[in-house]
């Protein structure tokens, strides 16, 4: 299993896949993300075979949707997470309405600064650094929220905490992450 893949390296690999359909570049991405996506799926579905199928489906989407990844925004891992999340939602036949950036009523961002691409790359780095400083009790709540497909009230039950404590850990975690991102502006 690939132990590490730097954000910039992952971005270059995915752009290469999008532009030239390079199988070697995709293999490097697969060897890093496949075990992680399989673990993500297994946390919810429990059945190893089903987790394997959902992982394969997610990675097939990474291959087929590579042109939709915007290298100027966000990090490959965040993008892979959203694909895995959507595969899991479809598997359970749920619906998650989404905004449509091409809708005329959609309110676009104000004019981007010239160095927006640089800023977004900095964001990924700052976010990671800030994540490393969060207390374990906040990380634990975020992991449960993102990976286990349970509501915040269920998280509270599982951890034996009042719901208000869970919500305040969420607030504190994102307040810190946001202030880390705002610090560079």
């Amino acid at each position: 299993m690939a132990q590490a893949l730097e954000p910039d390296a992952a971005r270059r690999l995915l752009v290469t896949v999008a532009q030239t359909r390079n199988v070697d570049a995709f293999e490097t991405l697969f060897r890093f993300y496949a075990p992680r996506v399989r673990s993500f799926m297994a946390l919810k579905v429990r059945d190893r075979q089903v987790a394997e199928e959902l992982m394969q489906e997610t990675m097939a989407s990474v291959w087929s949707k590579a042109t939709q990844f915007d290298p100027e925004r966000g990090h490959v891992s965040a993008w892979v997470f959203t694909i895995a999340r959507n595969v899991r939602i479809d598997f359970y036949r749920r619906r998650r309405p989404q905004f449509d950036a091409s809708d005329p009523v959609f309110v676009a961002d104000s004019a981007p600064p010239a160095d927006e691409e640089f800023e977004h790359r900095q964001d990924a780095k700052l976010l990671r650094e800030a994540m490393a400083t969060l207390p374990q009790e906040q990380i634990e709540v975020l992991q449960k929220a993102f990976f286990e497909d349970i509501s915040h009230s269920t998280i509270a039950e599982e951890l034996g905490l009042p719901i208000g404590t869970v919500k305040s850990r969420i607030r504190l975690a994102f307040a810190k992450l946001r202030s880390a991102l705002e610090g560079r502006r």
């Binding site: 893949l5 992680r36 996506v37 993500f40 966000g74 990090h75 490959v76 891992s77 965040a78 993008w79 892979v80 997470f81 959203t82 895995a84 999340r85 964001d123 990924a124 976010l127 990671r128 994540m131 990380i139 975020l142 992991q143 993102f146 990976f147 975690a173 994102f174 992450l177």
Partner: peptide, 9 residues
């Protein structure tokens, strides 16, 4: 979603 990606890593 960026935080989720960092946790996924």
């Amino acid at each position: 979603e960026g935080a989720a990606g960092a946790l996924l890593d």
